[in-house]
Design a protein around this nucleic acid. Sequence first.
DNA 1: TGTACATCAGTGAACGCGCGTTCACTGATGTAC
DNA 2: TGTACATCAGTGAACGCGCGTTCACTGATGTAC
Lengths: 205, 205
Amino acid sequence: MAPRKKPATKYHHGDLRAALLSAAWTAVTKKGLESLSLRSLAETLGVSHAAPAHHFKDRNALLEALRAEAFRRFADAIEAGAKTGELDGMGVSYIRFAMEHPRQMQLMLREGETELGPEVMEQSMRAWQVLVSAVATQIGPTRAADERELHSMALATWAMVHGLAGLWTQVRLPPGVPKSGPDAEGLQRRAIATLLAGVAHPPRR
Amino acid sequence: MAPRKKPATKYHHGDLRAALLSAAWTAVTKKGLESLSLRSLAETLGVSHAAPAHHFKDRNALLEALRAEAFRRFADAIEAGAKTGELDGMGVSYIRFAMEHPRQMQLMLREGETELGPEVMEQSMRAWQVLVSAVATQIGPTRAADERELHSMALATWAMVHGLAGLWTQVRLPPGVPKSGPDAEGLQRRAIATLLAGVAHPPRR
DNA sequence: TGTACATCAGTGAACGCGCGTTCACTGATGTAC
DNA sequence: TGTACATCAGTGAACGCGCGTTCACTGATGTAC
């Protein structure tokens, strides 16, 4: 093996902190938030159950770090989706992320009993800015100049994609509705397009 | 006290089963699903911790009954909202229910590891039928005759109100967005109206 | 109306579970000399 | 290069916690006679 020269310290394990986060991500994907325990993570990594305490003050600290990671990946996905320049491309990215990582989405949405960490705040504001920009492009500079209008349309769009994601990841849909695949995505795109038609021809206030 | 003549048997406690469900509803409202335990419920009711076992096989059985109750109340609320004859009235009812009972909503949406109970199936189908009917009225009989079109628009509407409910109950909204009150409801109504404008003037497929 | 009996909701002790957390420790690693 | 030391990640035993679940029981209620 070539000599590793990792930036992080690597005494016994190598980089237990990162390994814990990575294992936690996988475990959440597989088993959900509820089943996630420090002890099971330690066991997975072949490390004593007390080891994680050296890297995370307590269970919540690990969860908060995991949440930040989820927000980071989410904001990245949104940003990448918006790169196409199309608002509905961003919407599709949003829904796709939620469908691929439903439990992480659940973690992100968990009501924080305490304040949100700065990392989480930053990433979610980033995603919001991307959304607002895309909506501004969609409605054109004249309407976008009205901030209330701009935010109103951004919220409507957000709600639509958020709702679609929620329906497909959490709700037992009625029989006949495709659960996944191109048919599902077609339905989702159609819903977004319907909203955007309304955005283009807004109802009189 | 007038002599009670309840239909249910009432040996020692009176009707522990109903009391458990009622206490569970309250506890979920206050503390959330996670903190709900049979032991704490028993304590609340001044009954031994083993008593609930006589009425619910296990914790999951109680949760399933509670879930059915939530779906029943939810479907009632949706139906009442649709009585006004307006689709957006139903939407407002949907969002209002979610905002008043966010934790129950969470319970309703919890992925069932097992099959859904018949009661839950029935109530959620009832709500879906109400939605489809309201959408049919909205788009008129000609378009409603196309079932794909009808269901597509119903899903879009559902996603919108579901998303709005999710945003306001689970998401830390950006600064400046009203959290509750008439301003919040105004924004929600506006989003629904925007979608309905799109429903009225659908994008070309 | 009264009595004997059956039913079964509720009791309280006990069990085992996985969990988070603490603690003094140990031993591999990095560093100063 | 070699040695002595400091650091600190990881150990393993122990603690207390609330939990669901079981069990033989007890005693209030409903019912048959």
